[in-house]
Design a protein around this nucleic acid. Structure first.
Length: 197
DNA sequence: AAAGAGTCCAACCGCGACCAG
DNA sequence: CCTGGTCGCGGTTGGACTCTT
């Protein structure tokens, strides 16, 4: 990773990988001042990082209760379903998976799930019998899904937003990980409803 | 054993939204 | 209103690691 300077030591910004010492300093400052005003946190920690970089490090790595690696089948299934529903809105999807970060889910999607879906699509295109019988399983609809995800805040998502507030609807504040099952059931119902529309 | 290809994931970038002054 | 600062998001990059030949 490259280090970038503008020539003056004052504006030197480290852009490389984070060291254990930097992590420790950042965590200490956040413990005292809380995770806000990232620019001043960076300054107080005495590390040559921009506020943005500090925030990212905290959100994706240092934050308490972060789960790392080993995404379970249940979580994977949930990601797939939520992606179908919400598109590439990783922060929203991550919000429904306690302990997971948007970056992790995005990476997981790009490296695992997008391939899986692509492969499934290929298989299905090879077996014309299934085509038409279940529109959700066809390559045609898959294209539509891609469209939704490419546009990010697609029209479909915009419509969704106006019809209900996602954050209010999926309020996990008082419930734990066990909600995954409930969510799974909800998404099943949602898929059936989508079939009617 | 070495080289090249493929994969993973931490971190950066650009942009838009929000808010205080 | 306008402006500047801050924050959060999704997309992208590139280094490290693993696999294949």
């Amino acid at each position: 990773m490259a280090l970038k300077t503008d020539g003056s030591k004052k504006n030197y910004v480290n852009r490389g990988a984070w060291t254990a010492e930097e992590d420790q300093r950042l965590a200490q400052v956040i413990e005292i001042h809380g995770p806000r005003k990232w620019k001043s946190i960076a300054a107080k920690a005495g590390i040559d990082r921009c506020g943005k970089s500090c925030r990212l490090r905290w959100m994706n790595y240092l934050r308490p209760n972060i789960k790392r690696g080993n995404i379970s089948d249940q979580e994977e299934d949930l990601i797939l379903r939520l992606h179908k529903l919400l598109g590439n809105r990783w922060s929203l999807i991550a919000g429904r998976l306690p302990g997971r970060t948007d970056n992790e889910i995005k990476n997981y999607w790009n490296s695992h799930l997008s391939k899986k879906i692509h492969q499934k699509g290929k298989q299905r295109r090879r077996s014309p019998k299934t085509e038409g019988s279940n529109p959700q399983e066809t390559g045609v609809l898959e294209k539509e899904n891609v469209k939704v995800s490419e546009e990010g805040t697609s029209k479909v998502n915009a419509d969704l937003k106006t019809s209900f507030n996602v954050d209010e609807f999926f309020d996990f504040s008082s419930e734990g990980f066990s909600n995954l099952e409930w969510m799974s059931q909800f998404l099943d119902v949602n898929e059936v409803l989508c079939g009617f529309l």
